[in-house]
């Protein structure tokens, strides 16, 4: 195959259901598999895997459901997370390490350490979160 001039990005889409713990991790695992086949370096694959998994978990635990899109270009992965609510009232607080509103039964399952959003930011080269209460939350992470 000829060398691509400006390769079209590869897009992967996932719908994440609220409360579906069984499927959480699937998007992360599938994206990871693709990146390995594409020859991405291990360190980047791992950051994408962690960031995507945390995003999946937040959709499962905290949101009414949403989507994850992975946009894969040479050397660069963009993960966009959208949900349909309930939104985050105080973003600064939510971004703090250790802050969590996860209820007791979720904590008993081993989740809700309040490290998801901080980890997502740490794994990203660019990180942006927007949220409107009553509407939903959008997160965009560029990992390169």
């Amino acid at each position: 195959m000829a060398k691509a001039e400006r390769a079209k990005p590869l897009i992967m889409n996932f719908a994440i259901e609220r409360g579906n713990f069984q499927l959480a991790g699937e998007a992360s695992s599938k994206i990871k598999g693709r990146l390995l086949q594409l020859g991405f370096p291990g360190n980047l694959i791992r950051r994408v895997a962690i960031a995507t998994y945390e995003a999946e978990m937040n959709l499962v635990i905290h949101s009414y459901g949403g989507t994850i899109e992975a946009r894969i270009e040479p050397g660069k992965v963009t993960i966009t997370v959208n949900d349909v609510g309930p939104g985050i009232p105080d973003l600064d607080k939510a971004m703090k390490a250790g802050f969590s509103t996860a209820p007791e039964e979720i904590r008993e399952m081993g989740f809700g350490a309040g490290m998801g959003l901080p980890n997502m930011r740490n794994c990203s080269s660019e990180f942006r979160i927007d949220s409107v209460v009553g509407k939903g939350t959008t997160i965009k992470m560029v990992i390169s």
């Binding site: 195959m1 060398k3 691509a4 390769a7 590869l10 693709r34 086949q37 594409l38 020859g39 040479p74």
Partner: peptide, 17 residues
């Protein structure tokens, strides 16, 4: 790198498409 589709990442992306 046994699972890699191509050494050139843009070509690999095309192949995956």
């Amino acid at each position: 790198g046994a699972l890699r589709l191509d050494d050139d990442m843009s070509v690999a992306i095309q192949k995956m498409e």
